[in-house]
């Protein structure tokens, strides 16, 4: 009776039902309140230019947060995404800048590197049964080391063709935001409309029972590891394109924790088995707005970090005490 269970997304929930969305995602109200406060204090928070900035910043976060959330729902974890992001950016930048390859080849190269990292994680965690926390913590360091070994010098000037990825607009929307929207949509549809989406929840809730129900408990999480690696590398390529430079030592450092914060703020249970893509979107927007608003208010970076960390702890406290208070 005291067990709090997060409802699963169904097509009906996706289609609408604003009220239910608020009830299930208290973060939505917090987000709205925060936007209001920032608008009142800065006066420029809701300007089109600023919103566009927030969206672009949040885009790379969302691209990685969605597959990571699926992985967490199925009971796994990937801490190596920050390093994979760096590797992806470096490979793409190197191909585009140094090797003068077309932007398409550069991006595909980055994705291949991300897929390779994801496949190593997936084999070790899903097929050999090692702890995802330990494996991906190790890969976090190992991949960063590999990136620095392969690309000891900073890379920059990738050419105008490659700048297209981060700078062009598709249907009036910045390309990174467009890509993030596609990833969010794909994630939500996957969870709600595919059999594998059901398997993700089932494996996260009870692996043994899923196995005894005939579900392939290795293949789906393995695929999610690969997709998470690919997504991290794609985010890296986008960042490289936007900044027109990548540094192996610092690119994406700490990114894994920011993404995980967004995922957990979005209501995905670290123990697996529950969560929604809509929640992840809220988590990503929350972090994006928080960071942007505080920057507009000239709040120093370390205060921003404290705010971000406190938000996660407050979110956990809210999830724990909230249902008790309303009872």
């Amino acid at each position: 009776m005291t067990t709090a269970t997060t409802a699963l997304p169904t097509p009906r929930a996706l289609a609408g039902g604003g009220l239910t969305a608020v009830r299930r995602n208290p973060l939505l109200m917090v987000l709205a309140l925060m936007v209001l406060v920032f608008q009142l204090t800065t006066g420029s928070f809701l300007d089109a230019g600023n919103l566009r900035g927030i969206a672009t910043d949040a885009a790379t976060l969302a691209i990685v947060a969605v597959p990571l959330a699926l992985l967490v729902i199925s009971g796994y974890l990937d801490l190596s995404v920050g390093s994979t992001l760096a590797l992806g950016g470096l490979v793409a930048g190197w191909l585009a800048g140094q090797q003068h390859q077309s932007p398409v080849v550069a991006v595909l190269g980055a994705l291949a590197a991300g897929a390779a990292v994801g496949a190593v994680n997936g084999v070790l965690c899903c097929y050999l049964g090692l702890s995802a926390f330990i494996v991906t913590l190790g890969m976090l360091t190992a991949v960063r080391g590999l990136a620095q070994q392969l690309f000891p010098l900073p890379l920059s000037s990738f050419g105008s063709g490659f700048a297209w990825l981060g700078g062009s607009r598709i249907a009036g929307i910045d390309a990174p935001v467009f890509i993030a929207a596609l990833v969010l949509l794909a994630g939500a549809l996957f969870l709600a409309l595919t059999p594998a989406g059901r398997h993700v929840f089932a494996i996260g809730v009870n692996r043994e029972a899923a196995y005894l129900s005939g579900v392939n408990i290795r293949r789906t999480p393995f695929a999610l590891f690969v997709v998470t690696g690919v997504a991290a590398a794609l985010a890296g390529a986008i960042k490289a394109s936007v900044l027109d430079s990548v540094v192996a030592g610092t690119s994406g450092a700490g990114f894994e924790l920011t993404v995980l914060t967004a995922v957990l703020l979005g209501g995905v249970a670290l123990t697996g088995g529950s969560g929604s893509v809509f929640g992840v979107l809220l988590g990503v927007l929350f972090l994006g707005c928080l960071q942007n608003g505080l920057t507009l208010l000239n709040v120093p970076t370390f205060w921003q970090q404290m705010a971000q960390g406190s938000a996660l702890v407050a979110g956990a406290a809210l999830a724990y005490f909230g249902p008790r208070l309303t009872r």
Partner: peptide, 17 residues
């Protein structure tokens, strides 16, 4: 331990396979 998915809905439980 081996049969139920406690947090999933009744339909998801019964129709998983």
């Amino acid at each position: 331990r081996q049969g139920l998915f406690p947090g999933l809905g009744a339909q998801d439980n019964a129709l998983l396979p």
